[in-house]
Simulated scan of single mutants.
Amino acid sequence: MLDQESYQREHHQRMIDGVVAIDFIQNWKIVHEVKQSRAIEKASEFQLKYYMYYLKKKGIAIDQGVLDYPKLKERIELQLTPEDELEIDQVLHAIKTIINQDEMPPRTKKNICRSCAYQEFCFS
């Protein structure tokens, strides 16, 4: 809702292949991800870089990504580097390894878990 209220002129929530839900894209060149706070900024950066990576793999050249913090009146511009792509490839490989295991890895509870959108997957 934050992105819809803050950026009313943009087309919101572009779902691509049922895999990524992009907050909004300007001219299919700049991907925006809207966040409330910088609490988990590194994760937010890699979420945005993953969206850029995913679109690149689909043949859509994205010039840059922007993390928007409307409540803070801040924005961070990001580029997808070859190093980022390598790290994303490694993370995706690790995810596939976990998925293919016979048993789930033990869950670890962190302070951020209480406000995580995926909390119900780990603790229900």
Rank of each mutant, 00 (worst) to 15 (best):
S37H: 10
K49F: 01
G65W: 02
V20R: 02
A39Y: 13
E45W: 00
G65D: 02
L55I: 07
S44K: 09
V91P: 03
I25S: 00
G59E: 11
L86N: 02
D63K: 12
D102G: 10
A39F: 12
A43C: 03
I16R: 05
S6Q: 10
H32M: 04
C116F: 12
I25D: 01
S37W: 00
A21Y: 05
E33Q: 15
L80M: 01
L78C: 04
A43K: 13
M52T: 06
K29E: 12
R114A: 10
M52C: 02
A39L: 11
D68W: 05
L78T: 04
L67V: 11
E120K: 13
L72W: 09
D89I: 00
E5P: 06
Y51H: 14
N111H: 11
E74R: 05
P82V: 07
L2G: 11
Y50V: 03
E33G: 10
S124K: 14
K58S: 04
K96W: 10
E5T: 14
D84V: 11
A61H: 14
R38M: 06
S6A: 15
Y7F: 15
Y7N: 05
S44Y: 07
Q90I: 06
V20Q: 08
I22S: 04
I98A: 14
L86Q: 10
K73S: 04
L80Q: 00
L67P: 05
W28E: 09
Y7Q: 09
M1G: 13
H32L: 02
T97D: 07
Q47A: 06
T81Q: 09
A43D: 10
F123C: 10
Q13L: 05
Q36P: 00
K42D: 13
L67E: 07
R107Y: 04
A21L: 13
L86S: 01
K96N: 15
D84F: 07
L2N: 12
T108F: 04
Q101V: 09
T97K: 14
L86H: 06
L55Y: 00
C113V: 08
E85G: 07
K56E: 11
T108Q: 09
E10F: 13
Y50P: 04
I99R: 14
Q101K: 09
L2F: 09
D3K: 09
N27M: 06
R114Q: 10
A21P: 05
H32E: 01
N111C: 03
D63N: 15
C122A: 02
V91D: 02
D63V: 07
Q119I: 07
E77W: 07
K73I: 02
I60E: 11
K109T: 04
E74I: 00
S44L: 06
Y69N: 11
P106T: 08
Q8F: 04
T81L: 06
K71L: 15
L92R: 03
I40D: 07
K49P: 13
K42C: 04
D89W: 00
C122N: 01
T81R: 10
A21Q: 12
K96D: 15
L80P: 00
S115V: 10
E5W: 13
